[in-house]
């Protein structure tokens, strides 16, 4: 038996799974939009705008879920500020604890996402607004190198938001989670593929978004899915030595259910959409592929979370 089986469940379940999903989508959407802004064409701004319009609401809902998951939700601010004798002492920060630095990362990312969201409320080509909205527009895209740096930093924060959740699970003593170091990169890549799939579904409904931009987005999604497949197989390879040491009653019940679900995620959430993308099918096939990628991303997180949460403590 592996040592991690003597640890207890953290009860991270129904609020946390959608948070992991939305965090990945928010970070991924911001990253894709930032890339389009930084290295894409002027016409790509119609597509990048969609990413910014998704990122902030997604991370906001995710934050709400995180707060609701706390057993003392009104003390959520204790994550960021130390509390000693009712005097907030700055700051609560541990670079060695993913839940601590992750709280800062999502807070900082939310700031970037907020500014970009407000800036994106104005359609590309429309007259710049005055007042606060105009200020956000200027920060986001009107200050030359500074704005590019702003978007780049936001993209980095987005990637970190998508990936730290995997590190959060690995930096524990729970079985499976702590037995692999690849969950952070798995969540990162999955966050990007699901974000690209969502942006495709939203983008194809808008006439302003060019076919070419959508084509490059689906190509990015195909490459992401390819990397995701490699990472997921790598994760399973790192866990191979551990799987034999898991309790047989768990293996025959939850292990089977989660194993079948993971297989379905790999086949229908990665391989089938990848095959559709590589065949360069259009229209409805790509809608199906994108929907499958989104569902795959959600179920992938559920499988990862429940793999440890369903395991009873030994001893």
């Amino acid at each position: 038996m592996i040592d991690e089986l003597y640890s207890a469940s953290a009860h991270w379940t129904w609020w946390i799974i959608p948070y992991f999903f939305l965090g990945g989508i928010a970070g991924g959407c911001y990253f894709i939009s930032a890339m389009l802004d930084l290295v894409g064409d002027r016409d790509d701004r119609h597509l990048s705008r969609i990413g910014y319009l998704v990122a902030f609401p997604a991370i906001s809902i995710g934050l709400l879920l995180l707060v609701l998951d706390l057993n003392q939700p009104l003390r959520f601010w204790h994550m960021l500020l130390r509390r000693e004798d009712f005097i907030p002492m700055p700051f609560a920060f541990k670079w060695w604890s993913p839940i601590s630095y992750g709280s800062w990362v999502i807070s900082v990312f939310s700031g970037f996402a907020f500014v970009s969201f407000l800036a994106a409320l104005v359609r590309p080509g429309d007259t710049p607004r005055r007042g606060p909205l105009g200020l956000f527009q200027k920060i986001h895209s009107g200050l030359g190198v500074f704005s590019k740096l702003f978007v780049l930093l936001g993209a980095i924060a987005g990637l970190w938001t998508a990936s730290y959740t995997g590190a959060l699970l690995s930096v524990t003593n729970r079985p499976i989670w702590a037995n692999t170091n690849l969950l952070s990169v798995l969540f990162l890549v999955s966050g990007l593929s699901t974000a690209a799939a969502l942006m495709y579904l939203l983008g194809r409904r808008r006439r302003s978004v060019s076919e070419d931009a959508l084509h490059r987005l689906t190509r990015f999604d195909d490459l992401s899915l390819g990397v995701e497949l490699i990472v997921i197989l790598g994760t399973l390879a790192t866990l191979a030595a551990v799987l034999g040491g898991l309790p047989s009653d768990w293996a025959l019940t939850w292990g089977m259910v989660l194993g079948v679900t993971l297989l379905a995620v790999i086949v229908f959430g990665i391989i089938v959409p990848l095959a559709i993308g590589l065949r360069q099918s259009g229209g409805r096939s790509l809608v199906l592929a994108s929907t499958l990628v989104l569902l795959g991303g959600l179920f992938l997180r559920a499988v990862v979370v429940f793999s440890a949460e369903t395991m009873e403590k030994l001893g």
Partner: peptide, 11 residues
């Protein structure tokens, strides 16, 4: 605040 990180961290 009941984040429960300590529960998963305790070996």
């Amino acid at each position: 605040n009941g984040c429960r990180a300590c529960i998963a961290a305790c070996p």
